[in-house]
């Protein structure tokens, strides 16, 4: 465990908690893409099936359980509890266009052709693009609440910090995983535009409104 990995994990955890807190506190999930949240719940479920096969550490297992539980709690809040506030008219990104290519790619490019390894690979590919429905929703409405932009910033930073973690692991442990690295780069690049807006607007105390 290095500092990049730890801050990456904490940033990821923070993102998930910010989202839950925002929905709970405002009693509303407006501005949040339920479709992205479906994809994230799929990602965690597919990836963390290894909870049943590999025990790594208490930290590892606890974090995985929190991620899965939080993902389903978020879905519950969006689709059941605060259903009336869900922005379904703007949340129209077709997720099958992400799910199908990721599934196909995972079947072709994986480390090992076993159910668990293919699902693990699928989750890595899917995670890299899972934010697209959310970014699409923000671009469609042209704005995001400040708390939603904090959520997106924490979530985007997490994979960027993982990239630093992989550079560190390559140099100091001789370890690298090309599938995760390439997907991680794609994932981080997708946030770049948002990072720019976040730094130039939100940090200066302005709302995140997209340039017309």
């Amino acid at each position: 465990m290095n500092i990049f990995r730890l801050t990456g994990d904490l940033s990821h955890l923070l993102a998930i908690l910010i989202l839950l807190w925002k929905i709970w506190k405002t009693r509303s999930c407006s501005g949040i893409s339920g479709r992205s949240q479906i994809l994230f719940a799929t990602v965690y479920t597919a990836r963390y099936l290894d909870l049943f096969t590999n025990f790594v550490s208490v930290y590892n297992s606890v974090m995985k359980i929190i991620f899965i539980a939080a993902a389903f709690a978020t879905l519950y809040l969006i689709y059941v509890k605060f259903k009336a506030t869900y922005d379904r008219n703007h949340d129209t990104f077709r997720i099958e266009f992400l799910l199908a290519p990721c599934a196909l790619l995972a079947l072709i490019l994986n480390h090992e052709f076993t159910i668990l390894e293919v699902l693990w690979t699928f989750s890595i590919y899917l995670e890299s693009v899972a934010i697209l429905p959310q970014l699409f929703l923000v671009s469609k409405t042209g704005e995001a609440e400040t708390i939603t932009s904090h959520y997106l910033f924490a979530l985007g930073s997490y994979r960027a910090l993982y990239l630093l973690n992989w550079i560190y692991r390559y140099y100091f442990e001789g370890f690298f995983d090309l599938i995760a690295i390439v997907a991680g780069i794609v994932q981080t690049v997708l946030y770049c535009d948002f990072f720019y807006l976040y730094i130039t607007r939100v940090i200066k105390g302005r709302a995140l409104k997209l340039p017309a």
Binding site: D50, V56, M63, H111, W120, F175, D177
Partner: peptide, 10 residues
């Protein structure tokens, strides 16, 4: 091994 190192990450 390599597989364990991968599954160690979140």
């Amino acid at each position: 091994d390599e597989k364990e190192m991968r599954h160690d990450e979140l």
